[in-house]
Write a protein that binds this DNA or RNA. Structure first.
Length: 273
DNA sequence: CAGATGCCCTGGGCGC
DNA sequence: TGCGCCCAGGGCATCT
């Protein structure tokens, strides 16, 4: 389940591998199965012959900036992978888009569950208007974070996962951030002291930064892979997520799992208030 | 406004 | 071994 650290890892890989490269062929056999998508004919018309100028990220969205000014916007959903492969590599099932670069092999989007998105646009701000500030945006200071939390009655985990409030955090990192901040998922944002709000901000930045450093988390199903197909290494540092029944590494109490909003939430009942 | 539920989708794990 | 069930969950629609 790619969240901000995984998407950022792929962004850096893409930048390294393909900036300055020209797209000479764009095939989109399964594109229309994705949740939000361009028509394959439109995608092809606006990408073939174009050069990749830069790769941005906003929350869990990747923005491949072309020399035309268009962006190819990609969301990996639950199971999406972007993979760099030689042009002659066999095509995996659920391959939705294949970009052939001039002299640089291919970039392929593979997404079995098809929860992902891929579309080309010249109005990214409009298309992504629902997104709040990126969780790693330098402009999101502790002070602004505290101000944004004030008056919000919503529960902390729901707020962290609300992409309109702050973009990039999903179920896994929300649990890790709350553990790090020693805060419970069901606490209300408006009830936090300024000290606690600061702790949450710091936990968010520290957790995401560390996860990026270790190239994201790959779970047992190994759904998340980087551009080269390698798994992440941050799962070894998880403190809450997926650790039901294991000892909290801070207080030795037992990590519990509860269902909330149809999703699993892992936490330490003792040291997270 | 907050929160719960259901939907989209497939692969993997588990119990019988 | 094989079958069916459940689970994973991002984002969105819909309801209470």
């Amino acid at each position: 389940m790619p969240e901000l650290p995984e998407v950022e890892t792929v962004r850096r890989d893409l930048e390294q591998a393909f900036v300055g490269c020209q797209m000479v062929g764009v095939e989109a056999p399964g594109l229309i199965r994705l949740r939000r998508h361009s028509l394959p004919s439109e995608l092809r018309a606006r990408t073939e012959g174009r050069t990749l100028m830069g790769v941005g990220r906003w929350g869990k969205y990747l923005l491949l900036g072309l020399d035309s000014g268009d962006d190819v916007v990609v969301h990996l959903g639950m199971s999406g992978q972007l993979r760099a492969v030689p042009s002659q590599a066999p095509t995996l099932p659920h391959t939705h888009v294949v970009v052939t670069w001039a002299g640089a092999g291919q970039l392929r989007l593979v997404d079995p569950r098809a929860f992902g998105e891929l579309f080309v646009t010249d109005r990214r701000r409009v298309e992504l208007a629902h997104l709040g500030v990126d969780a790693m945006d330098p402009g999101l200071t502790a002070r602004r974070w505290g101000a944004a939390l004030a008056g919000r009655r919503v529960r902390l985990k729901a707020l962290l996962m609300d992409q309109r409030f702050v973009a990039g955090i999903g179920n896994l990192y929300a649990d890790e951030i709350l553990w790090s901040a020693k805060l419970g998922a069901d606490g209300r944002a408006c009830d936090l002291t300024s000290r606690e709000a600061g702790r949450l901000w710091r936990a968010m930045r520290v957790t995401l930064t560390a996860a990026i450093e270790y190239r994201g988390s790959s779970l047992a199903d190994a759904q998340y892979r980087d551009l080269a197909g390698a798994v992440g290494r941050y799962q070894a540092f998880h403190q809450a997520y997926g650790r039901e029944g294991l000892a909290c590494r801070r207080c030795r109490s037992t990590i519990v799992r509860v269902r909330a909003g149809g999703r699993s939430a892992f936490s330490c009942p003792r040291c997270q208030r």
